[in-house]
Amino acid sequence: MSPQLAAYTTSTGEAFQFWVLGTVAVIGALSTVFMKKAVHSALSLAGTMIILAVFYLANGAYFLGIVQIVVYTGAIMMLFLFVVMLVGVTAADSLKETIKGQRWLALLCGVGFGVLLLAGIANASLKQFNGTGQANANGNVQGLAALIFTKYVFAFEITGALLITAAVGAMVLTHRERTERPKTQRELAEQRVREGKHVPPLPAPGVYARHNAVDVAGLLPDGTPSELTVSKTLRDRGQVRDVSTEALNDLRALEQRAEERLERTPVEPAHRKQSEEASK
């Protein structure tokens, strides 16, 4: 980010920065595409975007660079993450192709398009680089402001209207009208008593089974997991983690160690058998 941006070639520092960060950006882009989990893709994309922000700064677009970090990476990518969480963070996307020939066609088109684009850039006479030094003479932000509020004022107003419309539209799309009044806590309690089922609150997830994650089902006294303990949303998504086998094995190992330390004889076969059955 040298203050004087060279016209024809860049400084060695910038070149070094480009090759290192550029490689990382491409890797980030590729992993955005090829990561199995959406949350990983999102994080890779965020990384790529930050690198792009650095490149903006290097090209004299100081305002855009900062906006890229604050708005794009900070706000938009976080929105993505929110939605990923809503949809299900662990829902892994199978990369197996279902449409016949789609992947090959996509790769063919991608390679063809890329080659043609690169060839086009190589073919173009892009030798003259004026640099933004003069344009940024009064400061980048002031320069942008002068343009936005004069030459591009209509476009600016229209994008403003677009943003408002988008916000209203998103609200309309996701808003669900309640058709009836939500039940108060008192009414819910009365309903439980009336039905006579689960009069006390539902059991908490697997905290008593030495796990404190909400997606781990609590174990019943005989070692089997109880679905009831997990939130209905997770159950619907099929994101319940069954740790009963693991827990029983842990238990057995603990007992083993305790017996070894107490130098007791191994447990009776009958007892052993029972625990094996329970583990099934």
């Binding site: 950006a25 491409v26 882009a29 590729l30 955005t32 595409v33 790529t48 996509a106 790769l107 088109c109 991608g110 390679v111 398009f113 890329g114 684009l117 690169l118 850039i121």
Partner: peptide
């Protein structure tokens, strides 16, 4: 161009 192509693919 490369990033664009990767995104499109």
């Amino acid at each position: 161009a490369l990033l664009f192509t990767i995104g499109a693919t």
